[in-house]
Design a protein around this nucleic acid. Structure first.
Lengths: 149, 149
DNA sequence: GCTGAAACGCATAACAC
DNA sequence: GTGTTATGCGTTTCAGC
């Protein structure tokens, strides 16, 4: 994959507006429509562009409660980690699960309707996973910057 | 804003594929193209759909280093918080900034090329902000689940 | 609210440079 | 690699239900 300034501009623009018309994108980066389209397609086929998503406002969907949760496991073995990861795989409230360094093993992003449903998640989901030893909740009060939407 | 089953299907589909053709989307939800388009436009205008974004693979762009950083401030005043938030507003490495409850005030998501450039960010950016008192880095080793990417 | 048709604009591919 | 051109398809508007 070529990595020149034009492709950088294309990606920058598509990250900002994933639905921009190819014709408009071409004008911005200073190419003809066909040349621009070929670059975009190459970026898609090579996996640099993994897809496109609409950014939905969680508040209007009744998902106004967001928390980041640090989770410590009682064992640090591979099997223990895999069991923990699999337990969360299909839990809809868990939007992200990161295996991190530091005082705990996992950092989760949780989205629920309100604090009541978060409490239910906390007790029924996290509390029922055998590997979990510590849970530290950080409730999001505001997100002054969020470029991953 | 109306919240029926059809709009839910539309949002679900647009979250999965933000660049789906309106004609195809209409077929999926069982509407004519024009009716479907009007619903999508209403969702956009009412702010439920905040925008569209291309999902870029960071690894291929040389941004393989990701960390979550807890930041504690020396003062908890509004002006102190605002100064901190403004200091990060245009820092490209900072992809997210959340004001959270708990042992620290802010949780940041940082993306850099490698640990060397992270160290530079750590020292030159975070280290130079007067309000910052504590910094706790959690380097992401793996993300078994990431539905916001 | 919805459908269906008609006009318009854009995406796309073939071509030449 | 690039731009130009031509065609077909999707988007969008509007009348009618």
């Amino acid at each position: 994959m070529k990595k020149d300034r034009i492709n950088d501009r294309i990606l920058q623009e598509l990250r900002r507006n994933g639905r921009i018309a190819n014709a408009e994108l071409a004008e911005i980066v200073g190419l003809s429509a066909s040349a621009c389209l070929r670059r975009v397609q190459e970026l898609e086929n090579s996996g640099v562009i993994k897809g496109y998503r609409a950014v939905i406002d969680n508040l209007t969907l009744g998902l106004g409660f967001v928390a980041y949760v640090g989770v410590g496991l009682s064992e640090h073995s591979t099997s223990s980690q895999r069991a923990f990861e699999q337990a969360l795989e299909f839990v809809p409230e868990v939007k992200e699960c990161h295996n991190v360094t530091g005082a705990f093993e996992y950092l989760l992003r949780i989205e629920t309707a309100d604090i009541k449903s978060y409490k239910a998640f906390h007790a029924d989901v996290l509390g029922s996973i055998a590997q979990v030893r510590t849970i530290t909740s950080h409730i999001v009060m505001d997100s002054p910057k969020d470029e991953r939407a």
